[in-house]
Design a protein around this nucleic acid. Structure first.
Lengths: 191, 191
DNA sequence: TGATGTTGGTTCAAGTTTTAAACAATAACT
DNA sequence: AGTTATTGTTTAAAACTTGAACCAACATCA
């Protein structure tokens, strides 16, 4: 079968995307490195934890949430632990498990640096998009993410399908939290 | 000044983007690594060269084109040269300069692997977007790229200059390079 | 119960990639 | 000429990623 090359429109879009994503990632890394002393991924780990009920998540769940390998996450958490912004706890229900917990310092770091981060994101992205475009952007990105994850078009994992941001509720909620099972909470759930 | 936090819509869009770009980059890297033996960035170097008049570009121009540092590019080209897909030539007009040239083998590699790459891009992106969305996508990404590049040369969110050692001289010089066209062509082959 | 297989998470070794600073050569400007 | 700026590489250190190997803890089932 002959290759379905990209149309000129698609080519333009693709180039724009590649350039933008590269520039964006660089900008985010630079900004966060400078202000928080962490690269973007590591910041994302903290952000993920802060977004979750008790600010704790089992390693595997966290890895899945961030779409990275467990090995990679282990490395990251080890460093974050050294920095004192994350702590590991044993899972009480599953003695194999360990739970990454955002420390107070971690929360403080997040609170201290979030404004700068948000500002960067704003200046790089949202300040230049109309409300309409923001919606379009979300749809497009969701479609891409879904396409890549659903290796099999049939088995769309937990929720969201292309068409509408179905899975993701509206209010500031965590995305589709892979709350697979065990939360391994220490005490009671709280907010 | 109070932080302008992201609205729920923006948050959703941002999360979708972060997830998508991470997944996409992974997918591209994996696919290209497997099929071409190169990570995405390296492939992009070849692609960039193939897209340019004589398939040759000065290092600095290439770096700028790809939005990466010269040091990084040096590393990349060194490897690509080892692989035989790129060759360095001296610039005739500027004895400091060196020019990266796509070799025949490089072109062959590109031609051999482009279909697979395009297919991946299609399956991950364009097969799931309407023509309208493709246009939107391009506009959005272009806006982002423009914002970051042309971005306020001094718009470092939370204070930029207060010492802080690793200045890296953001904003100075290197960013706003005008379009200096140094093709450093070998002289033959029109255009 | 014990055998078997699976999962969670880390460790290990190796490699890749990045970074920042220093550098030599050349160009450009005054 | 003398000074400054660029080009591109080098260098050393660090950061990060990978994949396999690994162990302990679970689960399953006979």
């Amino acid at each position: 079968m002959t290759t379905r090359w990209l149309t000129p429109d698609e080519q333009r879009a693709w180039r724009a995307y590649v350039a933008a994503s590269s520039l964006l990632e660089d900008a985010l890394d630079r900004q966060l490195q400078q202000e928080a002393g962490l690269p973007h991924l590591y910041y994302s780990v903290l952000a993920a934890l802060s977004d979750v009920p008790e600010r704790r998540l089992r390693m595997t769940d966290l890895a899945e949430y961030l779409k990275i390998t467990r090995s990679r996450l282990t490395y990251a958490v080890t460093r974050l632990e050294k920095d004192g912004v994350v702590r590991r706890e044993d899972c009480q229900w599953d003695k194999r498990g360990s739970v990454a917990v955002l420390t107070e310092e971690g929360m403080a770091l997040l609170e201290r640096t979030a404004p700068g981060h948000v500002e960067t994101v704003r200046k790089a992205v949202f300040d230049h998009l109309s409300p309409e475009q923001i919606g379009q952007f979300e749809e497009i990105c969701s479609a891409i993410a879904t396409a890549i994850q659903g290796g099999d078009p049939q088995a769309t994992p937990t929720g969201s399908r292309p068409g509408s941001g179905s899975g993701s509720g509206s209010g500031s909620g965590a995305d589709d939290l892979p709350w697979r099972r065990r939360a391994c909470s220490s005490g009671q759930s709280g907010q």
